[in-house]
Write a protein that binds this DNA or RNA. Structure first.
Lengths: 217, 217
DNA sequence: TCAGTGACTTGACAGCGTTAAGTGAAGTAC
DNA sequence: GTACTTCACTTAACGCTGTCAAGTCACTGA
C-alpha cells in the first residue's frame, strides 16, 4: 500500500465507523419507539441503549425530530414496498382490494409506526423532507392506489359520477384509514367494543366497492 | 340571620368561590388547548393566565390528565348534544346522513377537541371515567347512530348480509372518522392535496349508503 | 513534530409535571 | 377576646426532558 491508498483506506474506515454508529442509533431508536412509543422514548434512553452519551446523537442527527423523521421515511418506503409486492394484478378493482388488505396488515403489524406516519400531525416536515428525496413520502403507496383508480375509470368500472381519480382514491384511503385508526385509539373501549379490524377493513372495502362500481359482482 | 344561617351562608360563599376558581382553570385550559393544542399547553401557562401559581391547580384537579379528561367529557356531551339536535327524523337513513354531516361539522369546528377525543389513545382512562358518569363518554352519539342503524335493519332497508347493527354502525363511523382524521393530519401535505373535507364526508356517505342499502334511490 | 480534524463527553441550561412544606386569612370554640 | 382549626394558595424544590457550549482525545496530514 502506498500512502494514498492508506489514506483512502483510513478515511473509508472512519466513514464506515461513523455510519455504523449512526445505524446503531437508528436501530436503538426504532426498537424503543416500537416498544414505548415515539413520545415516551427519550434521547437519553436511546443513547444508553448503545453505550453513548445523549449528546453523541446530535453529531449524527440535528435533533430528535430529524431522527424520528428518518425512521418515518424508512417506514414509508416499507409501506410502499408492501404495496408494490402485491404486484400488477390485472383487474384494477381486485388490485385495490389487495392493496387495502396489505395496507391494513402493515398498519396492524407496525402499530407504533402507523400511528406516527398517519395519525400524527407533522406540519410541513414532510414537505421539507420531500425536497431531499425528490418525491413525497406517501408517493409510492398513494401513487399506486391512484394508478389503480385511474385504470378502473378508464375501463368504465366505476359509476360515471366518480370522475375524479384523486377524490375517489382519497375516499378509499380514508375508509381504510378510518377503520385502522379508530381501532388503534378505541380498541380498549369496552363500551364501543370495536369489531375485529381485519374483518372491518374487508367490510368497508366491500361496501365502498359496491357503492362505486358500475357492476358489483 | 342567626348563627346557623350565617355559618351556612359563609360556607356556601366559600364553596362558590372555590367553584369559580375551578371554572376559571377550566376556561383558561380550554382556551389554551384550542389555540396551542393539549400537549403544548403547560400547567404553568394555565396558571399564569388566571393569575395563580401552577400548584394551585392541583388543589382542584389531581393532575394534568384529570383536567384534560374533564374538558374531554364536556366535549363528548357537546357532541352528543349536536347529534341529538338534529332530532328524530323519520327515515333512519336520512337520519344517519344528517348525523354524518353534524359529526363532521362538529369535528371541523372543534379541531383541537376532536383530535383529543378521537385521535388520541387514552388507554383505559375512559373506562375509569365511565364508572363515575354511569355511562361511557361516546354513549350518547354512538347509541344515537346505533339506534338509527337498528331501525334501518328492522325496516329491511339494508342488504340482508348486514345483520349486525354494531358492525355496520362502526363501519359508518369509521368512514366519516377516516375522512376527518386524515384531513387533520394531512391537510398541509402538498403532494396528497386532500379534497375539501365537507365534500369528502358527503362523498363517502353517499358511497357507503349505496353500498349497504337494498334500494339506493 | 505539531497543528488540525472530528467523534464523543462533560456539565450545564431552561422548561416540563408534580409535590412537601409553609403561609395567612377566615371560621370555630371556649 | 383568644386559641385552635381549616384550607385555598404559595414557595421552593425534585427529577425529568431536549438541547448545547465547551472540552477531551485519538487520529490525520504536512
Amino acid at each position: 500500500m502506498n500512502t494514498a491508498e492508506i489514506r483512502n483506506a483510513s478515511l473509508a474506515r472512519r466513514e464506515r465507523q461513523k455510519a455504523e454508529t449512526r445505524q446503531a442509533i437508528l436501530d436503538a431508536a426504532r426498537e424503543l419507539f416500537v416498544v414505548d412509543g415515539v413520545e415516551a422514548t427519550t434521547m437519553r434512553a436511546i443513547a444508553a441503549k448503545i453505550g453513548y452519551t445523549p449528546t453523541a446523537i446530535y453529531h449524527h442527527f440535528k435533533d430528535k425530530d430529524a431522527l424520528i423523521m428518518e425512521l418515518c421515511m424508512a417506514d414509508f418506503r416499507a409501506l410502499g414496498a408492501a404495496m408494490y409486492s402485491i404486484g400488477r394484478i390485472e383487474d384494477p378493482i381486485e388490485r385495490i382490494r389487495r392493496m387495502a388488505k396489505a395496507y391494513a396488515d402493515f398498519a396492524l403489524a407496525n402499530a407504533s409506526q402507523y400511528r406516527f406516519m398517519f395519525m400524527t400531525d407533522h406540519g410541513h416536515s414532510f414537505d421539507e423532507e420531500a425536497d431531499k428525496i425528490e418525491k413525497s413520502p406517501e408517493e409510492d403507496a398513494y401513487a399506486f392506489l391512484l394508478g389503480a383508480v385511474e385504470e378502473g375509470m378508464q375501463r368504465d368500472q366505476f359509476h360515471t359520477e366518480f370522475d375524479e381519480p384523486h377524490a375517489l382514491a382519497q375516499t378509499f384511503w380514508s375508509g381504510i384509514h378510518g377503520v385502522i385508526s379508530l381501532w388503534f385509539t378505541h380498541q380498549n373501549n369496552s363500551y364501543i367494543n370495536l369489531r375485529d379490524p381485519h374483518q372491518a377493513v374487508e367490510r368497508i372495502c366491500t361496501i365502498m366497492m359496491r357503492g362505486t362500481l358500475r357492476n358489483p359482482e
